[in-house]
């Protein structure tokens, strides 16, 4: 092996060990629930637990709503910034990065202060309005990923000319956005959507402090009280994330009008 290839390989192997060994160890531990044999008992227990089903369904639903609100907010914003307000791009980029700088716990305390039941907008006053608040919180949390995915996708197409071509054919703004722009940035939007899904499914702080029955607090609860199930849950969470990544790749390779 040439020396020039040796170091990258060493780096790759080191990285793979660093990533895979804890994962393999967790997986191996999750199979030990029954004494003396490897089994999927821990997974069976977790998957059969009504708490798992309820919390996962709740988080999946919230994730879906977050994605819809996020796409509705980010796609038109990124599109208009690129098309009409390119000077605002640094400001918008800075704003979308703020959730990475401001910790989730600070944001959620801000929400609780602003929207508590005795405030002018008591969003924490009922379960449904708190769910809505949680969705908005998750939209904020996923903004860096969603905005970047969409913005990168928008940069790969000539949105100005496509917009003008559609306008000259009599198209209105909503139709341009839905029929011309959105399908051509589908990969970026889905990429942002799957990342959002992965973030929402595993999020703990906001859901916990807003007292919502999400998957994150459920995982924490199981982790604090059981031995093997938390390992199984961790592996399931990884599997969900990887499934999301795989779906991004799959969708990217099957988009109409793209070179394969």
């Amino acid at each position: 092996m040439k020396q020039s290839r040796l170091f990258p390989w060493i780096g790759f192997i080191f990285g793979a060990i660093y990533f895979l060994v804890p994962l393999i160890a967790t997986f191996e531990f999750s199979l030990r629930m029954q004494r003396g044999i490897y089994s999927f008992k821990a997974y069976q227990v977790v998957l059969a637990d009504p708490g798992f089903q309820a919390s996962f369904s709740y988080s999946a639903l919230i994730a879906l709503a977050t994605i819809i609100v996020g796409v509705a907010l980010v796609v038109p914003t990124a599109y208009l910034v690129q098309l009409k307000l390119p000077r605002l791009r640094p400001v918008v980029e800075f704003m979308t990065l703020l959730p990475l700088v401001v910790p989730a716990i600070v944001i959620v305390f801000g929400y609780l202060r602003m929207y508590n039941s005795s405030s002018w907008l008591p969003m924490t006053g009922s379960a449904r309005s708190t769910d809505l608040l949680l969705i908005f919180a998750y939209v904020t949390l996923s903004l860096p990923y969603m905005y970047r995915s969409v913005d990168t996708a928008l940069r790969t197409i000539d949105i100005r000319t496509l917009t003008e071509a559609a306008q000259s054919l009599g198209s209105s703004w909503p139709r341009i956005l839905i029929q011309v722009i959105l399908p051509n940035i589908r990969v970026g939007v889905l990429s942002g959507a799957f990342l959002t899904f992965a973030i929402v499914i595993g999020e703990f702080t906001m859901a916990s402090l807003l007292n919502r029955p999400a998957f994150g607090p459920y995982m924490q609860l199981i982790g604090a009280n059981r031995a093997y199930e938390p390992a199984a849950l961790a592996v399931i969470a990884f599997a969900i994330t990887w499934a999301c990544m795989g779906l991004i790749q799959l969708v990217a390779s099957f988009s109409p009008g793209q070179k394969r």
Binding site: E164, A165, S168, G170, S172, N184, S255
Partner: peptide, 21 residues
Amino acid sequence: LKPHQRNIGMVFQAYALFPNM
């Protein structure tokens, strides 16, 4: 008038065909 109200056909240097169609 807005572009979509004029009934004018335009051909661009960069073709501007919709890639998804």
